[in-house]
Each structure stands twice: as structure tokens, then as C-alpha cells.
Amino acid sequence: MITVPNRLGVKFSLKQKPKLQPADILPIFQRWIQEHAVPGMLIDVIDYKHVVEGPGVILVADEADYAYDLGEGQAGLNYIRKRDLPDNLSAALRLSFHHALHAAKALEAEAPGDLIFDYSLAKISFLDRMNYRNQPEVFDAVRAEIAEIVGEIYGAPVEVSRVNDDPRRLFAVRATVSAGNFDLDDIARRLSDIRELA
């Protein structure tokens, strides 16, 4: 069985550069805390928008970070699960996808028509260099399983590729599905058994 990483990230990027500025995300996340708009034990909002291509604005929770992430020049929603990961990779990925999707939809609703996510591509990061060194062997060992798990979530075939091959960087993959091959509502239904942290 494949080890569950210490932390696991799922990021959806925006389709196009929005009018909304990173600074505008700060009050949204602050309000999310007040309204408990996303699941988790929400703690605080961190403002890192001043650093170039950084994690942007983060809504920190005990279990996870919700980042309006500016990494790689691609603004997006990065859900990083930090604690209480289920003990198998399939459940861990399903959990993280569920929360990433939920948060991305919630963010879209804050600026309808401006914030539009591209759900056909998910960047999955393994924040765990002990178990997931960014090396070809590691990729070879997990590639098929990731494709299968994510394929089941989408209900469609998924292409999995490495994000970069620098051994110092986090091990991360892109999971891509052809647009038109999936339906968000179906995905939500397939993940509807995920109940925790409501």
C-alpha cells in the first residue's frame, strides 16, 4: 500500500487573470471565518501577497490551509491538508479534492463571472520529502494509483505528469482530464460520502 504523505495539497488554478486583486481576498477570508463558510477549525488569515509568486493569502485552519495561491504565476485555490489525513492515499486524495472543490466553488461565488476555476487540471502536491522525494522512481511507483484514484473522482480517464524534475522541489503531479469529459455535480455526488469537518 502506498504511504499517505504528511501533508497533501490540491490546487485548482483560475482560467484567466481576474479583476479581483489578492488584497480583495483578505476580507473575504476574514468573513469566511466569521461565517464559518468553509469546514475546519478556522484560525486566522495570513497576508503573503507581497512576495512574488508566493502562497498569496492563506486562510489557516487547524486541519488545513486554504490558500489563494499565486505560485508559478498561476493564481488558484490550493487546499493543503495538514492533519488527520486518512490512512490510505485514496481516501486522503478524495478528502482533499472534496475540500478543494468546495472552497473553489465558494470563492467563485464571491466574484461571479470573474473568478473562474479550471477544474480539468489539478496540481497535487506531496509535502513530505521523507516519503516522497521528487525522483522518477517515486513517480513511477505512484503514477498509476494516482491516475486511478483521481480518474474515479472525475469519472473519466486522467493524465498524470510530474510538475518538475528538480529533486529539491516538492514532489507534485498534474492530473489532467479532457474538458467535457466530466461534470462537477457528478464529482460532488461521488465525493458526497465525505462528511467530516462539516
Binding site: 490558500a67 520529502r129 516538492l170
Partner: peptide
């Protein structure tokens, strides 16, 4: 240091006024 920031502190490192490095939001 950068690896640690990636894994434990949201990907950010901070330089202090006494030539230290700080990582925040660490468990």
C-alpha cells in the same frame, strides 16, 4: 531551510532584525 518552509510553514521564510530565519505557523 527552503525545504522546511515548503513542508512546515506554508512555503514562506522570514529574515529577522537579528540575522535569524523564522518559520511561522509551525506545529
Amino acid at each position: 531551510l527552503s525545504e522546511l518552509a515548503d513542508e512546515y510553514s506554508g512555503g514562506i521564510l522570514h529574515i529577522t532584525t537579528r540575522q535569524d530565519i523564522q518559520l511561522h505557523y509551525v506545529h
